[in-house]
């Protein structure tokens, strides 16, 4: 079970011949991820030696899909080409696309989202994210492998390193995870908190979900609305409560999001939804234990 990826996922790495691509392909294989193919245009026919495993390289995702049956993509492609790479993966029928790349222009990110998610009905995580890990089964992205431990908690976070921090704290307390997702810090992303909360609510193995939000946007408020109707307990944390007022969004952006985005607004929404709110990250394991009735 778990969500998005598991031991049966067949992963293609786009940008596999680059430094980051090769480095993290090796790390993913070490985790036990089934990396079956790589894509780098112009390098089809080569193989990449990733820590002793030979991974075949194709020119296009479509070829890789036909030859290897890959169904999950992990993207390490420079920012101006990464949205195109995600669209290529969706077009080739890839089900789950994890876009690691940081710095994709927002107009590209909008096209990417609308093609990949709305038109092709694929699942996308990112961009500008650390990826997805299903503990003990599959890692797609750049998260450090050693911190995960299989168990009943699902985790969704906007921040990369903060995700590691919390997962590590949970594991050290003996609390394992089903799937952990870093959704990315960009304004336009493939999966929001609410999308993944729906998945976790449906997942038989997940008993509790941890949501780590931060200032900006209104995804946390939207997620809180959904939490009200969930059967599973949710533990939450909002980062940036003591930060000074951040970079202000432009006028028009403020109109669209209706004045949401402050830490106060998010904390209020979490409290109203009955989410168990941690003031600082180290309180999270205790709250999860409480939620699990331990």
């Amino acid at each position: 079970m778990a969500i998005l990826v598991d031991k049966n996922s067949r992963v293609v790495v786009q940008g596999i011949t680059g430094h980051e691509g090769t480095f993290h392909t090796t790390a993913m294989l070490e985790f036990g991820t089934n990396v079956v193919a790589g894509v780098t245009p112009g390098k089809g026919g080569l193989t990449v030696d990733a820590g002793g495993t030979k991974v075949p390289v194709f020119n296009t995702v479509a070829e890789a899909a036909v030859e290897t049956g890959c169904d999950t993509s992990c993207i390490f492609v420079p920012p101006l080409f990464a949205a195109d790479a995600a669209c290529e993966a969706a077009d080739a029928g890839i089900d789950v696309i994890v876009n690691i790349t940081e710095g994709i222009p927002v107009l590209d990110a909008l096209r990417q989202y609308n093609y990949v998610v709305e038109q092709c009905d694929a699942r996308m995580v990112g961009p500008n994210c650390p990826g997805v890990v299903t503990a003990g089964q599959c890692k797609v992205g750049i998260m450090p492998a050693r911190i995960f431990k299989p168990g009943p908690v699902g985790l969704i976070s906007r921040s990369g390193t903060l995700t590691y921090e919390v997962v590590n704290a949970l594991s050290e307390e003996g609390i394992g995870q089903t799937t952990c997702i870093g959704i990315g810090g960009d304004p336009v992303i493939g999966s929001k908190f609410i999308d993944l909360l729906v998945d976790f609510e449906m997942d038989a193995e997940t008993e509790c979900v941890v949501v780590i939000g931060e200032i900006g946007g209104s995804d946390e408020e939207e997620a809180a609305e959904y939490v009200k109707q969930m059967s599973k307990p949710v533990v939450g944390f909002i980062s940036g409560r003591t930060a000074p007022p951040g970079k202000r969004m432009g006028h028009a952006g403020a109109i669209v999001s209706g004045g949401k985005g402050t830490a106060e607004s998010k904390v209020k929404a979490f409290n109203e939804a009955g989410i168990l709110l941690a003031d600082i990250t180290m309180e999270i394991p205790g709250l999860v234990k409480k939620a699990l009735g331990k």
Partner: peptide
Amino acid sequence: NGAGLVMTTMDVVKK
């Protein structure tokens, strides 16, 4: 390293 972590570190220093 990472905006979320540094923001949280500030929260924790204050705490």
